[in-house]
């Protein structure tokens, strides 16, 4: 067992974990933060994306022990302090960027990371950035629209509707 200490959504947490405990499992089973989903075993689907020290990572492909000392942010930490949806989350609702909701936490975390790096991404940049997040429901149309809208661009015009 290894002792890990990290900050998750602004709260300090500390626990003894096995070496093999993945960050995704630590969040879900250890902390009850089940918004982070696990959709594959090969680091492809992106449902488990969280931010570690401000960067998007696949939490199913990082050991909890390797996140010792890190600042971790999950989907549960994305809402505004008053509980309302943040700009990215609200854009997903406004533009119907989700259906079953399973890929959504990872999609939101990746989109937020993109916007932090690139506040006004083009459609092509968004599509390229989201290649590590698989959605089976939306055909991606409304996800890309939502990210355009969250960046303050005219999503409807850019989606040529």
């Amino acid at each position: 067992m290894t002792k890990v200490t990290m900050t998750v959504n602004g709260k300090a947490v500390s626990a003894e974990v096995e070496g093999r405990t993945l960050l995704s499992a630590f969040l879900r089973e250890g902390l009850g933060l089940t918004g982070t989903h696990v959709g594959c075993d090969t680091s492809q689907c992106g449902a488990c994306v969280v931010h570690v020290d401000g960067k998007a990572v696949k939490s199913c492909t990082m050991f909890a022990a390797d996140a010792d000392g890190a600042q971790v942010k999950t989907i549960e930490g994305m809402n505004n302090p008053d509980g309302s949806l943040s700009v990215v989350q609200q854009a997903f609702q406004d533009h119907h960027g989700l259906q079953c909701g399973f890929c959504t936490p990872g999609m939101v975390m990746s989109s937020a990371a993109l916007l932090a790096e690139n506040p006004k991404p083009t459609e092509a940049e968004i599509r390229h950035y989201l290649e590590g997040n698989i959605c089976r429901c939306t055909g991606y149309h409304n996800i890309v629209k939502a990210v355009l809208a969250a960046s303050g661009q005219d999503a409807a015009a850019l989606a040529a509707e």
Binding site: M78, N79, F92, D94
Partner: peptide, 19 residues
């Protein structure tokens, strides 16, 4: 109409079986 279910999904509060 905007989807009411989205608020829980977007906030990580959906409850799927494995949750």
């Amino acid at each position: 109409s905007k989807r009411r279910e989205d608020v829980r999904f977007l906030s990580g509060r959906g409850v799927y079986t494995d949750d």
